[in-house]
């Protein structure tokens, strides 16, 4: 059971440099490709990205979620600090708002907080509840510009 006393808790900020090779690796994973040559060239080659109007190699739209896995103890660290049972954990919702580009070489600082915690009764099992935890993360680049807001809803079934 998620520990409701964690509502409002702010996780220590994480700082991560966006690495070129991780962008290509991620683009390969979501496009199910075995080779860098097979992915959209904006995710692998600076010249292709610049030609397409980016200041550098951009990150794919869902890449920012991986920042939290590479910092602050990763998934297990987050789950343990919230008292969530890993075996009952489901990902409920994910949302990104994009305010500026994130490219290879950028240094992103993410601040994540526990924005909401609530229960919902199961439709098929009256008296049994699903527990929801909403995490909100603000990501800023090395110039202090807000580039992405992410909202992650975790569910314990």
């Amino acid at each position: 059971m998620a520990d409701k006393s964690k509502l409002g808790m702010e996780f220590p900020p994480y700082v991560i440099e966006v690495e070129k090779a991780k962008i290509a690796e991620f683009a390969m994973a979501v496009s199910q490709k075995n080779d860098k040559e097979q992915i959209n060239p904006i995710y692998a080659k600076s010249e292709a990205a610049k030609k397409a109007g980016y200041s550098g190699i951009p990150v794919p739209p869902t890449f920012p979620t991986s920042f939290m896995f590479w910092t602050g103890g990763g998934l297990m660290g987050i789950v343990n600090s919230l008292g969530i049972n890993l075996g009952r954990l489901l990902h409920g919702e994910e949302e990104y708002e994009y305010f500026g580009e994130v490219c290879a070489g950028d240094v992103i600082t993410g601040k994540m907080k526990v924005a909401k915690m609530f229960d919902k009764e199961k439709k098929d099992k009256p008296g049994k509840f699903m527990e929801f935890t909403l995490l909100e993360t603000e990501m800023r680049n090395q110039r202090g510009e807000l580039v992405i807001k992410a909202r992650t809803t975790l569910v314990e079934r």
């Binding site: 994973a29 794919p60 739209p61 869902t62 708002e97 994009y98």
Partner: peptide, 25 residues
């Protein structure tokens, strides 16, 4: 699955023109 959806979306609009992307699993 959302990453695959992201591939679907960026096949239609340039990555840099995306303003919001939201899903419920």
């Amino acid at each position: 699955i959302m990453g695959i959806a992201g591939e679907a979306v960026t096949a239609l609009v340039d990555n840099k023109n995306l303003r919001k992307f939201s899903v419920r699993f």
